[in-house]
Design a protein around this nucleic acid. Sequence first.
DNA 1: GATAAATGCTCTAGTTACTAGAGCTTCAAG
DNA 2: CTTGAAGCTCTAGTAACTAGAGCATTTATC
Lengths: 138, 138
Amino acid sequence: MLSIGDLSRRTGVKVPTIRYYEQMGLIEAAERSEGNQRRYERDDLERLAFIRHARDLGLDIPAIRELIALSQHPSEPCADADRIAADHLAAVREKIQRLKKLEQELERIVSHCDGGHSIEECYVIRALSDHRLCEGEH
Amino acid sequence: MLSIGDLSRRTGVKVPTIRYYEQMGLIEAAERSEGNQRRYERDDLERLAFIRHARDLGLDIPAIRELIALSQHPSEPCADADRIAADHLAAVREKIQRLKKLEQELERIVSHCDGGHSIEECYVIRALSDHRLCEGEH
DNA sequence: GATAAATGCTCTAGTTACTAGAGCTTCAAG
DNA sequence: CTTGAAGCTCTAGTAACTAGAGCATTTATC
């Protein structure tokens, strides 16, 4: 039997976050001690580690909820689980592409400015004021 | 004299967002018509375009506030403006690095699964359940 | 000049995934 | 048996908007 603090230490998920996940329905409401404190078992530890891992990979709560539901039907085909992961991968790739464009634009703006002159002539400010100074679209 | 809708159309910033920026102090409270509607001029158009552009580049509101304040002292040195942009560039680069790690891990997980078997054997679910199946740290 | 549609106003609340804090209770160690 | 750590619930705050209610004004048409 683990207290919420034990569970927290073992999974790296903060105590209030565990309670939040319970509220969101990602983990079942734990049994309680006589004094109304949450008590957990090995199963909960595994479930929470699963959630933690999925969150670290950037999956959002609805996606995790769905994966948990799927994992409770071991004999069903796994196409849905695969799709969730693949969709997320696509989203991550898109985000990277968008950020790379930003990186380029910022790089260009920053490289025109060495911080050694006045605001009036500052390329950073000028570039922000005038979109025409940009190369790509964003 | 432009209405808030005119301003919105010309800058691509939605009407409620313009009001929000006013509330946040990014643009000055506009003059009002007799019937209490906001009326804007060319200056406001430029200011809002500046904000829009900075937001598109991913700068947050405190940073934009600071840039606006700086831009109002044209003869000061521009080191601060340069620093804001450079810091943001660094943050963007970090985010890209983090996402690339995620991309790799997800790629690996997804590539092990073709959606054609059962949840029980599904690599997506197994990988999430067991962090030891991962290659990098995340 | 009347009327109706479009636009504008303010205010409140919702979004995501937590985090912080208040005020109180329970647990574990000595 | 005391005391300090840990736990409990509940509310509110974060970032940058977005949605909607309920009402007022403006503009175009007749």
